[in-house]
Design a protein around this nucleic acid. Sequence first.
DNA 1: CAGTGGTCTAGACCACCAA
DNA 2: TGGTGGTCTAGACCACTGT
Lengths: 260, 260
Amino acid sequence: MGTTGQLSAVPEPKYWHLRTVLLRAIDSEFSTGQVLPNERELAARFGVARATLRQALDQLELEGRLVRRRGIGTLIAAPRVGVPVSRQEEGWPGAGRSQAWRTVDCTTAPASAQLAQSLGIVEGATVHTVRRVRLVEGRPMATESLHVPASALPHLPGFRAESDRARSVLRQLERLEVDGESRAVELGVAEADEAVLLERPPGTPVLVMTTQYASAGRLVALAVSTYRADTCKLTFGETGLVEVTPVGAAGAAAEVRTAS
Amino acid sequence: MGTTGQLSAVPEPKYWHLRTVLLRAIDSEFSTGQVLPNERELAARFGVARATLRQALDQLELEGRLVRRRGIGTLIAAPRVGVPVSRQEEGWPGAGRSQAWRTVDCTTAPASAQLAQSLGIVEGATVHTVRRVRLVEGRPMATESLHVPASALPHLPGFRAESDRARSVLRQLERLEVDGESRAVELGVAEADEAVLLERPPGTPVLVMTTQYASAGRLVALAVSTYRADTCKLTFGETGLVEVTPVGAAGAAAEVRTAS
DNA sequence: CAGTGGTCTAGACCACCAA
DNA sequence: TGGTGGTCTAGACCACTGT
């Protein structure tokens, strides 16, 4: 049934069909944390090569339905965590109640051409950069680079201990009245540094959020955050309203079971 | 340099190294629309199996840097398009100036359990569903399912021609005063229907945006939109502010060239 | 038709983890 | 040490595009 008839229908790729079968099985017969049969066995059971099976698992992992751990197995993933992203809710990078930020380091350096353009300042102007990790339930969910032109923080106290720099910058930022935010969200992958901070291998898909903060008509900060796409759902709630649950998922299917 | 010393360092996977090399080449030596050498030749040039090369290309495609067309070749992708997503800017699904929506169909049916819960209504209650495609520069960029409980539109005129239904629903919606929006963005993949509307193969990564619209304290609509992750960058701008350009990209590298 | 990317196979070896 | 997922190979065939 559907839009494609039986004749002249292009055969659906095996891996896509597999993904659908596995997805139904996951929805109906497995629950969070359970481990699937290993790849070699699943491949044999479905009569395909391991590479083909893995292609199906890759899809499901991208969708956040599976988690694969080397040496352990393939597990059913927990539903994605809704992560609030708004200054009101999570506060200035560090000020919110959730308080789930951990500062990694803080540097002060001249702006590259790229960064200067993004901040609307001249190349080479001094910029403070605070690098941080956002923790949710103790696990790293996002990294963030917060770039602040030195000119936006005229009252920054002089040099202090390395670990104090970040605190000073953030404290000064909180005193500014932010009257405008401009956001963008797109798909990216974690490069070397980010991957380490997120405790994931390089190439892990992430949601990249770029936020410009304006105060008194001037750009005072640029935040570039990368959220783990497999486990995060970015929420821009103004009001809590009603719980949102995914529209979709259905049916049932046998075929996959721990035992044979 | 970094946290891992030279000793005991795990060798970087070939495909990841390849991706880095190719990325540098793309940034420095190619421009939008140019075609790369074909996969078999690139694989030979780098001394790897075609499958390994393809793994690197998969990454770059996920990052929106490459577009692969069967029968044609692998092309350098255009920078992602910034797509404004806010009721003020793009209007009620259909009312904005950009006016880039094309209605696919409109159905009126009892709500499934899932949908009912998301809308905060009882299962089986009547819901209008408008399915549409968002066009940017003439190309389909997103699909959307707009669910509206019939109870939210008391003044909907009676049955009309099929093609008029969607228009009526949208027109009635515009008359409501929306006093709250709650958004969520996460990663997903295009299933059969969506894939067709987006003119992409199934499994294509998409940014799924779920929006709840409230009026007078009640949920009046639920929009589920899927944006092509390869070509779209979702923007939630309040004010235009300054142009945002990606922070990153660099260097140069030879090795890849059309001729040998 | 020749050339391209897309799918699939069968097998090998490696890195990691738990017992 | 045995089992798991991660990487890589060499080759085959298919589906699509242009000429």
